[in-house]
């Protein structure tokens, strides 16, 4: 599968019925994420960015259009274990300890946990949860739970990573820390990544390009390339060039 880790959306439309009224969440959206790229989706509430991600995961079906992960349809790709996902809510199973929660995708796609023992230990180390392997989610802080869910997303060594506001519930300080860590993890894994976020600075710091969406109906307003060299240091957050690009995204969002 390696080498074919692109994500493509072709003329995707999706509408929902809520309280008897039909509204268009996505209207004819086309987008390509080349292999190994990092794309951030940003936009006002209700612009359909999370819907786009749910369609790519096969959690919902588009009304029209086609979505491909490499050459595969979403459900085929996710069942192969080549995709990883983290949501805003860590959604850890309260009765499983950290290790067992990280191993959940293995249980779903039917791979033996024993073959991944080293991988799990390595991930626990990577997200800084060493010593908490046997802890239950209820015993962890919000940030620790979120890091466990990132580790869960990476357990299958996915070629493609979907992140739906994974740090949305964290405070600003923790969020920046996690951004820096995520960049490191992403550079190691070389996974094609699609990040849905509300945070302008998060999007600019992490992504190769920022896709700005507009709402009612959900469409792509504009795509902004992020030229900063990698690895990006944490000092970038305070640099004038970073702020200038933040302002470009902000302007695009307000126009949207």
């Amino acid at each position: 599968m390696a080498g074919d880790r692109s994500i493509s959306f072709r003329n995707v439309s999706k509408s929902f019925v809520a309280r008897g009224e039909r509204f268009t969440a996505l209207d004819d959206v086309s987008m390509d994420c080349p292999p190994g790229s990092f794309t951030a989706l940003i936009g006002p509430s209700g612009c359909g960015k999370s819907t786009l991600l749910r369609l790519a995961l096969g959690l919902d079906q588009p009304d029209r259009g086609d979505i491909r992960i490499g050459r595969l349809a979403p459900r085929e790709a996710t069942a192969s274990g080549d995709t990883g996902v983290a949501f805003q809510d860590p959604a850890l199973l309260p009765w499983r300890n950290v290790e067992a929660n990280i191993a959940l995708p293995l249980d779903v796609i039917g791979k033996p946990r024993s073959a991944f023992r080293d991988r799990i230990a390595e991930l626990i180390d990577l997200v800084g949860l060493k010593g908490f392997e046997k802890s239950l989610p209820g015993e962890l802080s919000g940030g620790m739970r979120q890091r466990a869910s990132i580790a869960r997303a990476l357990v299958t060594r996915p070629g493609i990573l979907f992140l739906d506001e994974p740090f949305g519930a964290l405070d600003q300080i923790l969020r920046r820390q996690m951004n820096i860590e995520l960049q490191r993890i992403w550079a190691d894994s070389k996974a094609t990544t699609l990040l849905v976020t509300h945070g302008i600075d998060e999007a600019v710091f992490l992504a190769d390009r920022v896709v700005v969406m507009q709402s009612r109906p959900g469409r792509i307003a504009t795509v902004i390339d992020v030229p900063f060299a990698r690895p990006r240091p944490k000092e970038l957050f305070t640099s004038p060039a970073f702020h200038a690009l933040n302002d470009v995204v902000t302007t695009a969002l307000h126009g949207a």
């Binding site: 096969g58 274990g81 995709t83 949501f87 959604a91 959940l104 995708p105 869960r152």
Partner: peptide, 9 residues
């Protein structure tokens, strides 16, 4: 939690 399981097929 159900979404996580579904997201892995």
């Amino acid at each position: 939690s159900l979404d996580v399981v579904r997201a892995y097929g």
